[in-house]
């Protein structure tokens, strides 16, 4: 199959952002989207041009490194997959595919389709953990956890930190990501001791990083490669409200 690739090129400080269009011919439908980009890059290199920079690593939908907005939707047309799991059979022969980087102020463009998502790490650093030193843990089965809670925690913990929720949200809000992290630990007994502090600090960091605010449009859950439910956002809202109330009522 043949396609046209309309792709964002930018090197901050050097090349101003703009679209370029490349032809990609004789592609196989069994190719992955990233393999198509590889192929285009091979040609660009051979022509003496600079290849398109894009992030990727595992190429099986788990590391969360791949990004990019394909035809207006982060991670492309399929639901429940990351960019690296998009295959060319999802596109029409002759189609023009528009590829843009994730766009949000807290995700500055590093180059072309590569953006800086370290804001996510900082949100995590603000409390996305249980404070337990190595060696200080009791026996793993000393604390039974209802399967339901463990499963709910897992649903939230499945987040791969890709940032698609921010990219797709009309407000560039990081609520789904932050909520997934908060909700994961909030469902578990291990997470209770630091529950209030965690949610307050993580939300504060999220706000300070410059993400937008959630207006409950639920685009995020649809674009999320792990289909994390917006119920976790409700849960974080609840945890936050409780945290403000209990902390304020403290003697």
């Amino acid at each position: 199959m043949n396609i046209q690739l309309k792709v964002w090129r930018e090197t901050p400080g050097k090349v101003e952002g703009h679209f370029e269009t490349y032809e990609a011919n004789d592609l196989s439908k069994d190719m992955s989207f990233l393999e198509m980009l590889d192929t285009v890059n091979e040609h660009l290199t051979e022509e003496g041009k600079e290849p398109i920079a894009f992030d990727h690593d595992c190429r099986e939908g788990i590391c969360g490194m791949c990004s990019s907005v394909i035809n207006g939707v982060p991670h492309g047309p399929d639901r429940g997959v990351a960019t690296c799991q998009v295959y060319m059979r999802n596109f029409e022969d002759g189609e023009t595919i528009t590829v843009e980087p994730f766009r949000a102020k807290p995700f500055p463009i590093v180059r072309d389709l590569v953006v800086d998502r370290t804001a996510f790490d900082r949100i995590q650093q603000a409390g996305g953990y249980v404070s337990v030193n190595t060696g200080a843990a009791p026996d793993a089965n000393a604390l039974p956890i209802a399967k339901k809670d463990a499963d709910n925690a897992f649903d939230a913990a499945a987040c791969i930190g890709c940032g698609a929720c921010v990219a797709v949200c009309k407000n560039a809000s990081a609520m789904l990501f932050t909520a997934a992290k908060v909700s994961h630990l909030s469902h578990l007994p291990q997470g209770q001791a630091e529950k209030n502090r965690r949610v307050i600090r993580m939300v504060q960091t999220m706000d300070n990083e410059g993400f937008g605010n959630c207006t409950n449009q639920y685009e995020c859950e649809a674009a999320c490669p792990k289909q994390i439910s917006v119920q976790h956002i409700a849960r974080m809202n609840r945890d936050y409200a409780m945290a403000l109330l209990t902390e304020a009522a403290e003697v």
């Binding site: 953990y129 249980v130 337990v132 190595t134 060696g135 200080a136 843990a137 009791p138 026996d139 793993a140 604390l143 039974p144 956890i145 209802a146 399967k147 463990a150 499963d151 925690a153 897992f154 913990a157 994961h184 630990l185 578990l188 291990q190 997470g191």
Partner: peptide, 14 residues
């Protein structure tokens, strides 16, 4: 396993 569970790793449970 003890350490991971204490950190909140959601292992499969019965």
């Amino acid at each position: 396993i003890d350490q991971c569970v204490a950190q909140g790793v959601p292992f499969a449970r019965e």
